[in-house]
Nucleic acid binder design. Structure first.
Lengths: 213, 213
DNA sequence: GTCTATATTCAGATAGAC
DNA sequence: GTCTATCTGAATATAGAC
């Protein structure tokens, strides 16, 4: 609540940071409490003052990860003027998603990359949170579609999964420095909305409509 | 070589299949030799007649996985008539990639989803193989670009990573039955080449060119 | 080739001193 | 709050019977 943090709070955060970083790098099962403790400048036994089990630690890391992206994307929409053009709304969402993923990324990246390999019970509890986040993206895309900014002859669900795939996969290859995250967001939006086909290569619905017009 | 397989070969394959399936589901570290053995109808100790260690088993699963996608995409290009339009070449590559990933998928999916969490030494040996596969995709896209089918104002490397991300991520969400893999490939190519923006929403290079024309 | 039995190592977790 | 010491279970790997 207040600005001051108890010693316990500070250690707790240090442990969580260390856990997120290690889970992300080595996976859940391969990460030992010893490694986490070392990265947090403690002994393994000391972790148990703050967490009851490795699983509890994992679950908190996962929760923080999903919450951060969810909040970031949500805020990107709330901060938008009501009359913002659909393209800008989508771009803001993509940018927020990528920035949270790649910039302050251990929690969010851990969530993404170890999700399929965690204990079944924990995964079941995570699913509703992922669904809620997915629904947020569904609303964003559907709003753009209703505003006439997206074609209506595509499967919105598949578009969403392909888009989220392109975004989430970036945790596997993105290295800071080479390209800015904003430039990446631009690329994603360009591909999503306009595609990268040269004009003469366009075919199918969009090109046909243009010919008619 | 011949059609007949020794008893050893048959068991070996059964073990590899079981390992690929389990690695994919639970990750590398969380998978025990006991589980693999049970899935292969054996006792854990018996595995050692065929493989010297869990790591050796892992490495063979990874190799099979990357080789299968690589070969499938390569063949998709070799089977194309020399004068096939760029769009068809890309579509064939996307289709081959997705089909191998999702249809006969334990080896390829395992490779994708546990890659970041395997022992460092093994990962180092996998990297050149991934690079070779990445280079294949680079050639496919670059050929299309030279043929004038792709815009030349986009970063080819980033396009490739975003595209492969959208494709590879499908192992996390695709469930057989709902949508056909071919329909998915169509969607990917549509998005990649034309985008899903409605005409009125297009902006930037492509739209500008159209206005000028 | 596959089994059973077991050696060995190491992880998660607990207990009590400080 | 954190340490050290330790219990307990489980996993990889080995050895020898069949």
């Amino acid at each position: 609540m207040a600005i001051e943090q108890s010693k316990s709070d500070i250690s707790r955060t240090r442990i969580l940071d260390a856990a997120a970083k290690t889970f992300r790098q080595k996976g859940y099962a391969a990460t030992t409490l010893n490694e986490i403790a070392k990265a947090a400048d403690m002994q393994a036994g000391s972790l148990y003052y703050h967490f009851n089990s490795k699983d509890e630690l994992l679950e908190e890391v996962l929760d923080i990860g999903i919450n951060r992206v969810h909040e970031a994307v949500e805020e990107s929409q709330e901060n938008m003027p009501a009359d913002a053009p659909p393209y800008e709304r989508i771009r803001a969402a993509v940018d927020a998603h990528l920035t949270t993923l790649l910039k302050h990324g251990d929690y969010t990246s851990a969530n993404i990359s170890i999700f399929t390999q965690i204990p079944e019970e924990i995964r079941q509890r995570q699913i509703p949170k992922r669904d809620a986040f997915s629904a947020l993206w569904r609303r964003i895309l559907s709003r753009a579609q209703k505003a006439g900014a997206l074609r209506d002859d595509v499967d919105p669900g598949m578009v969403r999964m392909l888009l989220l795939g392109a975004l989430n996969w970036s945790v596997e290859w993105y290295k800071p420095g080479k390209t800015s995250i904003h430039a990446m967001a631009d690329h994603v939006c360009l591909m999503l909305l306009e595609g990268i086909g040269a004009d003469e290569a366009r075919r199918g619905t969009a090109a046909d409509k243009e010919k008619v017009a």
